[in-house]
Amino acid sequence: MDTQEDKVGFTPFAEILNGRLAMLGLAIGFLTELMTGKGILSQLGLM
């Protein structure tokens, strides 16, 4: 019988995906700030 690895927790796949999504979110945040001229807090109406 084959053994299966856990699919939850700190697996290499989950960490790579999390890192890529974080980089994507940061890049989108920077681009939005450049396009609007406002920071994220100003865009959300918090400042």
Rank of each mutant, 00 (worst) to 15 (best):
F13Y: 15
R20F: 07
I16T: 12
R20I: 14
D2F: 08
L46I: 15
L24A: 08
Q43G: 11
A27N: 13
E5G: 05
S42E: 15
F13Q: 14
E15V: 14
F10D: 11
S42H: 12
Q43D: 02
P12N: 00
G29K: 13
E33M: 15
M35V: 09
Q43V: 15
L24Y: 00
F10W: 06
M47R: 14
Q4P: 04
L44Y: 04
K38D: 12
M1R: 05
T36W: 06
S42D: 15
M1N: 02
G9F: 01
A27D: 14
G45H: 05
Q43I: 14
G19V: 05
T36P: 01
G39M: 05
R20A: 13
G45L: 08
G39Q: 04
G29V: 08
L26S: 14
I16N: 11
Q4S: 09
L21R: 11
G37C: 06
V8N: 11
Q4T: 07
T3Q: 08
D2Y: 02
I28C: 01
T11W: 02
L26V: 14
L44Q: 00
L41M: 14
A14M: 03
D2T: 07
L17H: 04
G37D: 01
L41F: 15
L44K: 01
F30M: 10
A22R: 06
L46W: 14
L41C: 08
L26F: 12
T36H: 07
E5I: 01
A14N: 11
F30L: 11
V8R: 12
F13R: 15
P12L: 02
L31C: 05
L41D: 12
G39I: 10
I40E: 06
K7C: 10
V8L: 14
N18G: 10
F10P: 10
I16R: 14
L26G: 07
I28Y: 00
E15A: 09
K7E: 11
G19A: 11
Q4V: 05
E33R: 01
L34V: 06
M35C: 07
L34I: 11
P12F: 01
A22H: 06
L24V: 08
Q43S: 04
A22W: 00
L41W: 09
T36L: 02
L24H: 05
I28N: 04
A22I: 04
L46C: 07
I16P: 03
L17F: 02
L44H: 04
F13D: 12
T32W: 13
Q4C: 06
F13A: 15
S42R: 08
M47P: 10
L44A: 07
L34S: 10
R20W: 04
A14H: 01
R20C: 11
G45I: 05
E15M: 14
T32V: 15
V8K: 02
L44V: 08
L34E: 01
F30N: 10
M47E: 13
E5N: 02
F30Q: 04
G29S: 15
A14R: 04
G45V: 12
M1Y: 00
P12T: 03
G37K: 00
L46P: 03
V8Y: 10
T36C: 03
E15I: 07
E33W: 04
T36N: 01
L46M: 14
A27Q: 13
K38T: 10
E5V: 00
K7T: 07
M23Y: 03
M23W: 04
